[in-house]
Design a protein around this nucleic acid. Sequence first.
DNA 1: GATGAGCGGATTTTT
DNA 2: TCCGCTCATC
Length: 783
Amino acid sequence: MPERIQLQKKKKNIRAINETNDFDNIVEYCTIIGYQFFIIMEIESLLSELNAPQREAVKTLTGPLLILAGAGSGKTRVLTFRVANLVLQGEATPGQILAVTFTNKAAREMARRTESLLMGMGIPLHEPLWISTFHSSCARLLREDIHRLGYQPFFVIYDDSDQLSVLKHVCKNLNLNDKVYPAKSFRHHISQAKMLGLSPDKVATQSFFRMDETTLEVYRLYEEELRRANALDFDDLLLKTYELLKNFPDVLKAYREKFRFILVDEYQDTNHVQYLLIKLLAEEHRNICVVGDEDQSIYSWRGADIKNILDFEKDFPEACVIKLEENYRSSKNIVEAASHVISNNTQRKNKTLFTQSEAGSKISLQAENNEYDEARFVVRKIGELRRNSHSLSDIAIFYRTNAQSRVLEEQLRSNSIPYRLIGSVKFYERKEIKDIICYMRLILNTNDDVAFYRVVNTPTRGIGKSTIEEVLKMTSTHKISAFEAAGQVAMQRLVHSGACNKLQNFRYLIETMKDELKSASTSEIYLRILDKTQYAQRLKEEKTPESEARLENLEEFQNAILQFEEEREEEATLQAFLEEMALISDTDNLNENTAAVTLMTLHLSKGLEYNNVFIVGLEEGLFPSGRSLAGDDPNLLEEERRICYVGMTRARHNLFMSYAKSRCVYGQEEYRPPSRFVDEIPEKYINANASIKRPAFLDRYAEKYSKKESVFPNYEDDNFTDESFSQKPSDNYKRGERVRHPIFGTGSIFQVEGSGEQQKVSVLFADKSLKKFMAKAARLERV
DNA sequence: GATGAGCGGATTTTT
DNA sequence: TCCGCTCATC
């Protein structure tokens, strides 16, 4: 097979040969013509598998391109074909293409498919493809150049819990009361700043993002701590890369030249710093292709900025826009019902999903009395599906909040239906795994204070609180690492001699393993840790079910290490392993072929598809969530609607939606009306055979939900006979009385209108929000 | 340093 | 309700 030919140049040669009739070059000429013919055939065969807009997207190689890819519209296929086409046409070598995704799973899938496409065409891969997640691309880039920012190349990545641990230390040093200033809120604000691309200094000098003095001070100290530990948090991976490119023109120039073509998947989920980063890399050559679906933007609370995709054409006015609107996944009823729901949003591009597939079954809508009945309904239906020879692996149950899984699990278990729960307990966040990882981190980088504090007394080796206090004091007064401070504390005999020895022993333990690191493999280090720290030994001695489970997890962890070594071969360094661990998530390893029903939150369902989908808990205040209704931010509600859209469009054939009239929330029975999203599905797509008829009051609610009104329904002139909305004895409220509402908390009566059955009250809640209720119906109680 | 009472907080969680 | 974290206690 021909080597990759620089086709551009050759094309010119062909023209030259044509003009000069140079006979000597005829052979080369024929080779080129042959090759070109081969290429054309390959491209034609690629394109023949696509519909018109898809083809257009694959053929548009240069300049800014926005692909609006509706759910199930063959996005990955277009992306991979387009990469292949870039290479085939000689526009770029594989190494000149940067493709970023949000999940490892998506990256792996895209890399796999692209590679097999290219291999299938006999295009050898001389350089690795840069198809990876935003975060791991950045980590890779930073490994090369982070020394410019004053970090060591072997930086560690701090996850959320590591961040909290640093912040707790910072707060302690500043004498901040953790009740008034919870570490979590600092983490949130710092993350927000970082996602906006703002370092502490920048926060102080700009005006569009405000941060109070205390938080800014905490941010500063937090940064200092991370720098000293040579650690980056998740946001840093993006922010520091941005700063690197922004502040070092030569680095920027090099990467602009390297990545001549940039592809961004799930563009609707990019946050501001990702946007800045992409823009910085692409604004010169402008070969930037972004793919996304504004209707599937469900991560705004993590900083995703839907404006990035909505305003792409403003950033790149010459952009070509292609809409992929044909859905190949779901039956027509599902596609159209979902389209109707999402059409209620305003923050979107003008795009309508359609399909040529058959109408299929109608959506089954189920009303139940409570969450237990709802779960029983799901189980019953699963039984039916099974009898109709649907495999359990083809069935998924989605819910808005993790807490909802409990009742479902109970029912599934008692009916012996195997299930697997995705996302609730994360493997790599398990205590024993994290402990071992922290040992690894400390061995690699003794400046990693978080790791130090975690393992210094795990398993217990008699290093107690007061000793740790001394170490902490030492670190903050001398600005040294905890590992070093431990040495100082021991040397200066600042604690009793037993403790001094224990500190020294611990240091010695780490130091020896650090020495061994030079010759040992990652799996050897792992075994050494288990052995020398007596971690495994202690667990074995415990002999409790928990310790057994932990040992099993450790075994699984060992398998992961071995597999990693097999895959990466000589590149399987401890550092690379730790990086992989930090950037991986559980859902990445989701094995689709287990014969079990899958349970997960709607958020996690994005990107997946199942023949049979259950969406449960469609109730106002749950889905859409109470918080999206509480404020008056219509964007929050729109995001909830997108979540609904995402969930619905996961289903290929059967979609079951259900709601319960009452549900236990935080131990209290609550009555909630059906979700407005249910009502946004036109009647004709809903299964008339649903076992309970759609209650008439649903339609009456609909009229009352004006888009702005986010309060729970005023039951005004409805006289329900429905037992779920039992009437309370009417007792008149007076202005100034204190009341409590199960959702909004306590407040005082601000205004009273009418009396008796018709009395309406306005309540001013602690968060200064004013809400109006029908007194007899609202769940208010006097306090 | 392990254990239990007591308290507060409780959407969603790609990396 | 239920989980996790802190703090007091032995």
